[in-house]
Amino acid sequence: MRLSPLCLLAVVAGAPAWAQSPEAPLPAARGQPKFEAGLGAGGGFLPDYPAAGQNHFQGLAFPYIIYRGEVLRSDDQGLRGRFYNDDVLGVELSFSGAFPSSSDNNRAREGMPDLDWQGEAGLALRLTLWRDRETPQRVNLELPVRGVFSTDGTGVRYRGLTLSPELAYERLDLGRPGGRFRAGIGPIFATGRLMDYFYRVKPEHVRPDRPEYDAESGYLGTRLQLSYRMPVTERLSLVAGGRLESFHGATNSESPLFRQEWNTSVALGFAWSFYQSETRVASTSSPFD
């Protein structure tokens, strides 16, 4: 949905996994540290919610840990539990999230409850449709199904489910050794509970320009997202990302909270790894693992 801290900053945090100085051997030759710790930060100009009419700057700084285990991994692709993985098929835990949004700063939602921090967790199926090991690059079809939860810091509430199939292209060592480019496009579908969270207008929140509305499950929108991570040194990396979302034909386009058929997001971040274990993870058959 929104360009999220977990989507963007998990990439930021994982950047040193591929980072290297020009003199350092490639990860394939020496492996990668099994454990890393560092500091990451990022920010962007992001829409307040899907199909919102306003964007605001959001930022986050955080410590991070990278662990490259056989099953559980926290790396450049986020937090993952790899139940099955080979050159063609993968089944993993999948996580994402989104920043909160204050209704006081959004004209369409003025007087309504704020949108809280959101987290998503579920399973994702990855099918590799094509790969070139020499480049290396690949095209995946990814099928994540996630439950969505929100919190204001005092409790957690379940908000529904999302299904977001995506066709993704990934290229390693683009621009310089350790650079990683990713582009993905796909639709998003959500249950009525999550649609209500974004688009429902209860009777107590009705205004002359904001009639009552009860949202329905279905098609939320389509997103195109791009990211590029570039190592500066063996311990410092930069990342840039962007997202273009289309809400043409969305199920809840009649909601008074639905304000724009296009949303754009841009974000920048960095990661600095201040600790890397001497224990290395042996290279696998896939440079994308």
Rank of each mutant, 00 (worst) to 15 (best):
Y197N: 05
D209P: 03
P208S: 05
T191N: 07
E216C: 04
G221D: 07
E216V: 02
P208G: 03
D196Q: 01
K202E: 14
T222Q: 07
V201Q: 00
K202C: 05
R207N: 12
K202D: 15
P208V: 05
E204N: 14
F189M: 04
H205G: 04
H205N: 13
R223H: 14
A183G: 15
Y213A: 01
E204H: 13
I185Q: 10
M195A: 13
I185V: 15
A183D: 07
M195G: 07
A183I: 15
P203T: 11
G184P: 12
A183H: 07
L224K: 11
V206E: 14
G192F: 02
F189R: 01
D209E: 09
L224T: 12
G218N: 11
P211R: 05
T222M: 12
P211D: 06
I185G: 12
R200W: 02
G184R: 14
T222P: 10
D196W: 00
I185Y: 10
G218K: 05
P203L: 12
F198D: 01
L224P: 13
G192L: 06
Y197H: 03
F189P: 01
G218F: 09
L220D: 01
E212N: 14
A190I: 03
R193L: 10
G184K: 11
G221Q: 09
G218E: 12
F189W: 15
D196K: 00
Y197D: 05
Y197V: 10
S217E: 11
L194S: 05
T191Q: 08
I188V: 15
Y197K: 01
M195C: 10
S217N: 13
R193F: 04
P208Q: 06
P208L: 08
G186H: 01
Y219H: 10
A215Q: 00
R210W: 08
I185A: 12
R210Y: 06
D196M: 04
A215F: 02
K202M: 13
Y197C: 06
V201I: 12
F189Q: 00
Y199P: 07
R200K: 03
Y213K: 07
G192H: 03
D214A: 12
R210H: 14
R193A: 08
T191R: 02
T191D: 09
R210M: 11
G218W: 07
R193K: 15
G186R: 05
I185K: 01
R223A: 11
P208K: 01
G221K: 10
L194A: 02
V201M: 02
G186F: 02
P187G: 04
P211F: 04
L220Y: 01
E216Q: 15
K202H: 15
Y199E: 01
P187C: 09
Y213C: 05
A190S: 03
I188R: 11
R210K: 12
R200C: 03
L224N: 13
G221S: 09
P203G: 06
E212I: 10
R223Q: 15
I188G: 09
G186Q: 02
E204Q: 15
D196E: 13
A215W: 00
P211G: 10
G192M: 06
T191M: 10
T222G: 03
E212C: 06
D209V: 08
L224E: 09
F198A: 01
S217L: 08
A190G: 03
G186Y: 04
F198I: 07
Y199V: 04
R223G: 12
R207S: 12
R223P: 13
Y219Q: 09
G186V: 04
